[in-house]
Nucleic acid binder design. Sequence first.
DNA 1: GTAGCTAGTGATTGGCCACTAACTTGAAGG
DNA 2: CCTTCAAGTTAGTGGCCAATCACTAGCTAC
Lengths: 180, 180
Amino acid sequence: MSAEERRESVVRAALIEFARGGYHGTSTEAIARRVGVSQPYLFRLFPGKQAIFAAAAERCVEETWRVFDEASTGLSGSAAAEAMSDAYMGLVEDRDQLMMQMQLYVSVSAARAAGEEEIGETARRLWESLFDRVRIRIGGDMEDATRFFSYGMLINTLVALGYPPDHRIWSGFEGCGPPA
Amino acid sequence: MSAEERRESVVRAALIEFARGGYHGTSTEAIARRVGVSQPYLFRLFPGKQAIFAAAAERCVEETWRVFDEASTGLSGSAAAEAMSDAYMGLVEDRDQLMMQMQLYVSVSAARAAGEEEIGETARRLWESLFDRVRIRIGGDMEDATRFFSYGMLINTLVALGYPPDHRIWSGFEGCGPPA
DNA sequence: GTAGCTAGTGATTGGCCACTAACTTGAAGG
DNA sequence: CCTTCAAGTTAGTGGCCAATCACTAGCTAC
């Protein structure tokens, strides 16, 4: 397998492992095991653990946009918003995708506490690019986009907390696309 | 200083450190240093690191409710919602409070991945108790409460990402109590 | 066939970290 | 004065983990 293909599989494995364990809670050993490769080899494919995390984070955001884009091609305004809402609810089944988002957000604050502002800039760039693409798609209004993302963040939280889809806590979403 | 008073100061210090570094990114050494006490002594006050984290998480949620309660005593319905919204926006200045919430959410998923379901149950109990108290205060409607919390979770996210209060990304909140 | 390159491994290391054990200090009480 | 107990410390241990180093197997080109 070529190095480039290996890197690709590392990113996929890292997304899952980081999503579940967080940055500090995930060992490079665990990622390597999931890829099916020795742990030192990761450091030949990437300069360090942080670079693997960054690649997984970027992949995660790209993937989220891909889901939105696919669900709403040809649509716009509130129809696009509704389609993307439904698509996001579908992601609830794929916990890893949503949890990786959360891990990205909290890792920014950890990095800032450690004096590294760089990860924060990357994360904000990723966030704004996703935010603006969604905003344009649903009509360009800032308040609409804010409402859209706010429901998304609550969904992330409830998934993180491990609520099953039929729990009463989800019942308040009725007005904006219920879970599944 | 009595053991009980020490425990109290440990909880306060732990809330700050865990908020910034996350569970695995925070050493007991760092907490002890902030308290001004030797690291092994923490283990005489608490059975282990997890117990310290749990205490800090519980404190964080209690404190959040205290802020809501104080801001909305005597009010109800949308007036209470508005007052609590404004109060929550005030917490943006106090990043640690909001970040500790986020750390609690993601640590549930990390614990679940490690096979420990207990933290998750604690976290859901804390979440529901806060959710329901707020819901009652603003009139009891499930959809209203969901909307309220969804905006809160987006605020948490933007704070985690490190956006300053005057950034354009906040401008979509105009309709529901702007930042500061 | 051999020189060189690419994919990959095994062994190791230095540092950190949660947690333990044993000791010290100081104040209250009889 | 001596005991007791609670608060707190110093020293140490075992385990994990990111990163490095030296090495090997197989392929291609000349």
